[in-house]
Design a protein around this nucleic acid. Structure first.
Length: 269
DNA sequence: ACAGTAACCTGTTTGC
DNA sequence: TGCAAACAGGTTACTG
């Protein structure tokens, strides 16, 4: 479910309930996630949250006694519960801070809750990640340089977290349409000018999606349980057979690298 | 090093 | 209506 804008939306929702607060308890009721939730997560209990931030699609909660890493996988969500509420199916853990319960739900169990002792950048899952798409180190020149000689489809290239983080299946299709690039074009066969347009499109679509609270296709909810409203602004994703907003011809759908991809065969090459 | 595929899960939608 | 297949926002491990 969650790509970068959805994780960012979640982070902003939980931030007021976590920043500078002491973590009173972590209640794990189902430790079966992509990796088993380690007992070491309890080490942050009793410590204040020193910083709360996002790296790629990870939420990082730093304390003086280590950092919690949370990943939402495909179907994870964090909800802020204001009153006592009975845990239900797929509620894996709660983080309790100053009377607020932050509850993690994840039906498909592709998410993570991990503990790391030092700088989270050194964690094996984070150490080889590429630059943030909204940061200074990411631009068209970077995408161009790094892609020389690569033959894989450009859509798969920009979805590779070692190249750039946070671009998932929805926003990859959207950005490629905005830049007029065919998703199946070999990454090494995209010009510098077009990579500049693509980098700009990626930044633009992610920033706009964050402003709308993310994209809810079926079940994404923010920390208040509300959906995101960017789905209304999607140009190609999920619109197979419907008219292209630019040329009016029917949009295509096909599987590229095991993922459904949407594009206009007239406007993208 | 690179590219492609299978795998990890459950829930919902689609198609016969 | 019923049942099985297909599909879903992510990521890693394995193969050749």
């Amino acid at each position: 479910m969650p790509e970068l804008p959805e994780v960012e939306t979640t982070l902003r929702g939980i931030a007021p309930h976590m920043e500078h607060r002491v973590i009173d308890a972590i209640e794990v009721r189902d430790d079966r996630l992509r990796q088993k939730i380690p007992t070491a997560v309890q080490r942050v209990v009793g410590h204040q949250v020193e910083s709360l931030r996002r790296r790629a699609k990870y939420i990082l909660i730093r304390t003086a006694n280590g950092t919690l890493l949370i990943h939402l996988g495909m179907s994870g969500s964090l909800r802020v519960l204001t009153s006592e509420q009975e845990p239900s199916r797929h509620d894996h853990f709660d983080i309790v801070t100053g009377g607020t319960t932050i509850r993690y739900n994840d039906p498909r169990r592709f998410g993570l809750l991990l503990w790391h002792d030092s700088s989270p950048e050194s964690h094996p899952l984070l150490s080889s990640l590429g630059p943030e798409p909204l940061g200074d180190a990411f631009d068209g020149d970077y995408l161009y340089q790094k892609s020389r000689g690569r033959r894989l489809a450009v859509k798969n290239y920009i979805m590779d977290g070692r190249v750039v983080v946070g671009v998932g299946n929805i926003y990859a299709s959207e950005a490629l349409f905005m830049a007029g690039i065919s998703p199946v074009r070999a990454a090494g066969r995209v010009s510098l000018a077009r990579y500049r347009a693509l980098a700009a499109a990626i930044r633009d679509v992610l920033a706009r999606a964050i402003r709308r609270g993310g994209t809810t296709l079926r079940d994404f909810v923010d920390s208040d349980g509300a959906p995101g409203y960017f789905a209304q602004e999607l140009l190609v994703y999920g619109r197979a057979g419907q008219a292209c907003f630019q040329c009016g011809r029917a949009l295509q759908q096909r599987v590229i690298g095991q993922r459904s991809s949407f594009y206009c065969k007239t406007c993208q090459s």
